[in-house]
């Protein structure tokens, strides 16, 4: 199942040039850019593994693209996303997040119904590999 989370996820996967242009836009706005990866695309899994620190003082997207290439090499078949953080409100708040790599075969997400307290129903989701 094609996971759709973050920006652009209903579009075809971005090419490297397109990713670079998006990162360039982030840097022009003075946002810090971070790379994160995970093998668990559950929508409630908000904390992905960080690939190094977010990059705060870059001028050119090439720096991010180099890190992304390293991250892809180390984590083939995982989800990788790029996050941009805006600090105008004195906290590094996320303003943009988009997927830049997904596994060839993506896991499906299944909804599970559980009956509790008599006939009450609880819904939860699990990632199926």
């Amino acid at each position: 199942m094609r996971i759709t989370q973050g920006c652009f996820s209903f579009l075809p996967d971005l090419t490297d040039d397109q990713i670079s242009a998006q990162v360039g836009y982030c840097l022009e706005n003075g946002w810090a850019v971070g790379i994160e990866y995970t093998d668990e695309p559950h929508p409630r899994n908000t904390y992905w593994e960080m690939w190094g620190h977010p990059m705060f003082d870059l001028r050119d997207p090439k720096g991010v693209m180099m890190e992304l290439a390293e991250c892809r090499k180390a984590n083939p078949g995982m989800y990788i996303r790029i996050n941009a953080f805006d600090d105008t409100r004195n906290v590094e708040s996320m303003t943009l997040s988009f997927l830049v790599q997904r596994p060839e075969v993506e896991p499906a997400i299944r909804m599970v119904r559980t009956e509790v307290d008599g006939r009450a129903m609880r819904y939860s989701h699990e990632v199926m590999r």
């Binding site: 870059l58 001028r59 050119d60 090439k62 720096g63 180099m66 890190e67």
Partner: peptide
Amino acid sequence: APKTREVLKRAMGG
């Protein structure tokens, strides 16, 4: 290595 790479990343495009 990380230190040098950090500097190089900062210098990219310049």
